[in-house]
Protein backbone atom coordinates (compact mmCIF):
# COMPACT_ATOMS: atom_id res chain seq x y z
CA UNK A 1 0.00 0.00 0.00
CA UNK A 2 1.52 3.29 -1.04
CA UNK A 3 0.26 6.83 -0.54
CA UNK A 4 -1.17 7.16 -4.07
CA UNK A 5 -3.28 4.08 -3.71
CA UNK A 6 -4.46 4.98 -0.23
CA UNK A 7 -5.47 8.50 -1.29
CA UNK A 8 -7.03 7.02 -4.44
CA UNK A 9 -9.12 4.60 -2.40
CA UNK A 10 -10.14 7.40 -0.01
CA UNK A 11 -11.13 9.53 -2.98
CA UNK A 12 -13.26 6.68 -4.29
CA UNK A 13 -14.84 6.24 -0.88
CA UNK A 14 -15.46 9.99 -0.63
CA UNK A 15 -17.14 10.05 -4.07
CA UNK A 16 -19.61 7.37 -3.01
CA UNK A 17 -20.33 9.10 0.30
CA UNK A 18 -20.84 12.48 -1.45
CA UNK A 19 -23.32 10.87 -3.85
CA UNK A 20 -25.27 9.10 -1.09
CA UNK A 21 -25.35 12.28 1.03
CA UNK A 22 -26.52 14.36 -1.92
CA UNK A 23 -29.39 11.97 -2.58
CA UNK A 24 -30.34 11.55 1.06
CA UNK A 25 -30.17 15.23 2.10
CA UNK A 26 -31.89 16.64 -0.98
CA UNK A 27 -34.33 13.70 -1.14
CA UNK A 28 -33.61 13.71 -4.86
CA UNK A 29 -31.59 11.89 -7.50
CA UNK A 30 -31.95 14.69 -10.05
CA UNK A 31 -28.96 14.95 -12.36
CA UNK A 32 -27.69 11.47 -11.52
CA UNK A 33 -27.52 8.82 -14.24
CA UNK A 34 -29.17 5.62 -13.03
CA UNK A 35 -27.52 3.83 -15.93
CA UNK A 36 -24.01 4.71 -14.77
CA UNK A 37 -24.92 3.56 -11.27
CA UNK A 38 -26.24 0.22 -12.57
CA UNK A 39 -22.98 -0.20 -14.47
CA UNK A 40 -20.99 0.47 -11.27
CA UNK A 41 -23.08 -2.14 -9.42
CA UNK A 42 -22.23 -4.63 -12.19
CA UNK A 43 -18.55 -3.58 -12.01
CA UNK A 44 -18.27 -4.20 -8.26
CA UNK A 45 -20.28 -7.42 -8.36
CA UNK A 46 -18.21 -9.01 -11.12
CA UNK A 47 -14.87 -7.78 -9.74
CA UNK A 48 -15.25 -8.73 -6.11
CA UNK A 49 -16.40 -12.34 -6.54
CA UNK A 50 -12.94 -13.16 -5.19
CA UNK A 51 -14.36 -12.28 -1.77
CA UNK A 52 -15.43 -15.92 -1.78
CA UNK A 53 -12.12 -17.36 -2.95
CA UNK A 54 -9.28 -15.31 -1.48
CA UNK A 55 -8.62 -13.13 1.53
CA UNK A 56 -6.17 -10.24 1.22
CA UNK A 57 -6.76 -8.09 4.31
CA UNK A 58 -9.49 -6.69 6.53
CA UNK A 59 -9.05 -3.38 4.68
CA UNK A 60 -9.48 -5.06 1.29
CA UNK A 61 -12.53 -7.06 2.33
CA UNK A 62 -14.31 -4.19 4.06
CA UNK A 63 -13.76 -1.83 1.12
CA UNK A 64 -15.10 -4.44 -1.31
CA UNK A 65 -18.17 -5.09 0.81
CA UNK A 66 -18.74 -1.34 1.18
CA UNK A 67 -18.44 -0.71 -2.57
CA UNK A 68 -20.81 -3.54 -3.49
CA UNK A 69 -23.33 -2.64 -0.77
CA UNK A 70 -23.44 1.10 -1.48
CA UNK A 71 -23.69 0.54 -5.24
CA UNK A 72 -26.93 -1.40 -4.69
CA UNK A 73 -28.23 1.20 -2.23
CA UNK A 74 -27.55 3.88 -4.86
CA UNK A 75 -29.42 1.94 -7.56
CA UNK A 76 -32.27 1.36 -5.11
CA UNK A 77 -32.46 5.10 -4.32
CA UNK A 78 -32.63 6.01 -8.01
CA UNK A 79 -35.11 3.40 -9.22
CA UNK A 80 -37.24 2.98 -6.08
CA UNK A 81 -36.91 5.29 -3.11
CA UNK A 82 -36.47 8.61 -4.95
CA UNK A 83 -37.84 7.44 -8.29
CA UNK A 84 -40.15 10.47 -8.85
CA UNK A 85 -37.07 12.73 -8.92
CA UNK A 86 -35.14 10.55 -11.39
CA UNK A 87 -34.66 12.34 -14.69
CA UNK A 88 -35.03 9.35 -17.02
CA UNK A 89 -35.73 11.54 -20.06
CA UNK A 90 -32.15 12.76 -19.97
CA UNK A 91 -30.62 9.39 -19.06
CA UNK A 92 -30.79 7.94 -22.54
CA UNK A 93 -27.31 6.55 -23.14
CA UNK A 94 -27.51 3.10 -24.75
CA UNK A 95 -25.58 0.94 -22.27
CA UNK A 96 -25.70 -2.13 -24.53
CA UNK A 97 -23.18 -0.27 -26.72
CA UNK A 98 -20.80 -0.47 -23.75
CA UNK A 99 -21.63 -3.85 -22.23
CA UNK A 100 -21.53 -5.91 -25.43
CA UNK A 101 -18.13 -4.76 -26.77
CA UNK A 102 -16.61 -4.75 -23.27
CA UNK A 103 -17.87 -8.31 -22.72
CA UNK A 104 -16.39 -9.41 -26.04
CA UNK A 105 -13.07 -7.76 -25.27
CA UNK A 106 -12.90 -9.41 -21.83
CA UNK A 107 -13.27 -12.80 -23.53
CA UNK A 108 -10.53 -12.03 -26.04
CA UNK A 109 -7.98 -10.06 -23.99
CA UNK A 110 -7.48 -11.40 -20.46
CA UNK A 111 -4.72 -12.75 -18.23
CA UNK A 112 -6.24 -16.22 -17.97
CA UNK A 113 -9.22 -17.89 -19.59
CA UNK A 114 -11.16 -18.73 -16.43
CA UNK A 115 -14.57 -17.56 -15.26
CA UNK A 116 -13.35 -15.40 -12.36
CA UNK A 117 -10.54 -13.89 -14.38
CA UNK A 118 -12.80 -13.06 -17.33
CA UNK A 119 -15.34 -11.45 -14.99
CA UNK A 120 -12.54 -9.48 -13.31
CA UNK A 121 -11.30 -8.31 -16.72
CA UNK A 122 -14.86 -7.45 -17.77
CA UNK A 123 -15.24 -5.31 -14.64
CA UNK A 124 -11.96 -3.47 -15.28
CA UNK A 125 -12.97 -2.67 -18.87
CA UNK A 126 -16.53 -1.79 -17.91
CA UNK A 127 -15.43 0.52 -15.10
CA UNK A 128 -13.29 2.50 -17.53
CA UNK A 129 -16.40 3.53 -19.50
CA UNK A 130 -19.15 3.25 -16.86
CA UNK A 131 -19.21 7.02 -16.28
CA UNK A 132 -20.15 7.74 -19.91
CA UNK A 133 -23.95 7.72 -19.33
CA UNK A 134 -23.40 10.25 -16.51
CA UNK A 135 -21.16 12.50 -18.63
CA UNK A 136 -23.66 12.16 -21.49
CA UNK A 137 -26.44 13.26 -19.15
CA UNK A 138 -24.46 16.32 -18.03
CA UNK A 139 -23.77 17.29 -21.63
CA UNK A 140 -27.41 16.69 -22.60
CA UNK A 141 -28.89 18.83 -19.83
CA UNK A 142 -25.97 21.26 -20.21
CA UNK A 143 -25.41 21.56 -16.47
CA UNK A 144 -24.39 19.83 -13.29
CA UNK A 145 -25.07 20.83 -9.69
CA UNK A 146 -21.95 21.65 -7.69
CA UNK A 147 -22.42 18.59 -5.50
CA UNK A 148 -22.64 16.36 -8.59
CA UNK A 149 -19.43 17.99 -9.84
CA UNK A 150 -17.67 17.25 -6.54
CA UNK A 151 -18.81 13.65 -6.85
CA UNK A 152 -17.47 13.37 -10.40
CA UNK A 153 -14.18 15.01 -9.45
CA UNK A 154 -13.58 12.63 -6.54
CA UNK A 155 -14.57 9.64 -8.68
CA UNK A 156 -12.30 10.67 -11.56
CA UNK A 157 -9.37 11.47 -9.25
CA UNK A 158 -9.43 7.96 -7.83
CA UNK A 159 -8.28 6.29 -11.04
CA UNK A 160 -5.84 9.09 -11.84
CA UNK A 161 -4.22 8.43 -8.43
CA UNK A 162 -4.16 4.71 -9.25
CA UNK A 163 -2.08 5.56 -12.33
CA UNK A 164 0.52 7.11 -10.00
CA UNK A 165 0.22 4.02 -7.79
CA UNK A 166 0.97 1.78 -10.78
CA UNK A 167 4.01 3.85 -11.76
CA UNK A 168 5.23 3.58 -8.15
CA UNK A 169 4.59 -0.17 -8.02
CA UNK A 170 6.32 -0.71 -11.34
CA UNK A 171 9.50 0.98 -10.13
CA UNK A 172 9.57 -0.22 -6.52
CA UNK A 173 7.80 -3.60 -6.63
CA UNK A 174 8.17 -4.68 -10.25
CA UNK A 175 4.39 -4.95 -10.41
CA UNK A 176 2.76 -4.32 -13.76
CA UNK A 177 -0.76 -5.21 -14.88
CA UNK A 178 -1.23 -4.12 -18.48
CA UNK A 179 -5.02 -4.61 -18.49
CA UNK A 180 -5.54 -2.45 -15.41
CA UNK A 181 -3.09 0.21 -16.61
CA UNK A 182 -4.55 0.59 -20.11
CA UNK A 183 -8.13 0.66 -18.77
CA UNK A 184 -7.08 3.10 -16.06
CA UNK A 185 -5.62 5.43 -18.68
CA UNK A 186 -8.81 5.27 -20.76
CA UNK A 187 -10.90 5.92 -17.66
CA UNK A 188 -8.82 8.94 -16.63
CA UNK A 189 -8.78 10.40 -20.15
CA UNK A 190 -12.59 10.33 -20.26
CA UNK A 191 -12.63 12.66 -17.25
CA UNK A 192 -10.12 15.18 -18.64
CA UNK A 193 -12.72 17.47 -20.19
CA UNK A 194 -14.70 17.37 -16.96
CA UNK A 195 -11.56 18.04 -14.84
CA UNK A 196 -10.94 21.15 -16.93
CA UNK A 197 -14.48 22.44 -16.36
CA UNK A 198 -14.27 21.59 -12.67
CA UNK A 199 -11.04 23.54 -12.13
CA UNK A 200 -12.03 26.53 -14.28
CA UNK A 201 -15.64 26.80 -13.07
CA UNK A 202 -16.65 24.87 -9.96
CA UNK A 203 -13.59 25.81 -7.92
CA UNK A 204 -14.33 29.47 -8.73
CA UNK A 205 -17.82 29.12 -7.28
CA UNK A 206 -19.70 28.72 -10.54
CA UNK A 207 -21.69 25.65 -11.47
CA UNK A 208 -21.01 23.78 -14.64
CA UNK A 209 -23.24 24.98 -17.44
CA UNK A 210 -22.44 24.25 -21.03
CA UNK A 211 -23.48 26.40 -23.97
CA UNK A 212 -26.57 25.02 -25.69
Amino acid sequence: MNIFRLVGDMSHLLAIIILLMKMWKSRSVAGISGKSQILFAIVFTTRYLDLFTSFVSIYNTSMKVFFIGTSYVTVYFIYQHFKPTYDSNHDTFRVEFLIVPVGGLAFLVNHEFSLLEILWTFSIYLESVAILPQLFMVSKTGEAESITSHYLFALGSYRALYLLNWIYRYYFEGFFDLIAVVAGCVQTILYCDFFYLYITKVLKGKKISLPA
Partner: peptide, 10 residues
Protein backbone atom coordinates in the same frame (compact mmCIF):
# COMPACT_ATOMS: atom_id res chain seq x y z
CA UNK B 1 3.66 -12.67 -14.33
CA UNK B 2 0.11 -12.69 -13.16
CA UNK B 3 -2.32 -14.72 -11.14
CA UNK B 4 -5.57 -13.93 -9.45
CA UNK B 5 -3.96 -13.32 -6.06
CA UNK B 6 -2.42 -10.22 -7.63
CA UNK B 7 -5.82 -8.55 -7.52
CA UNK B 8 -5.16 -7.00 -4.14
CA UNK B 9 -6.20 -3.63 -5.56
CA UNK B 10 -9.75 -2.38 -5.52
Amino acid sequence: DHDHDDHDEL
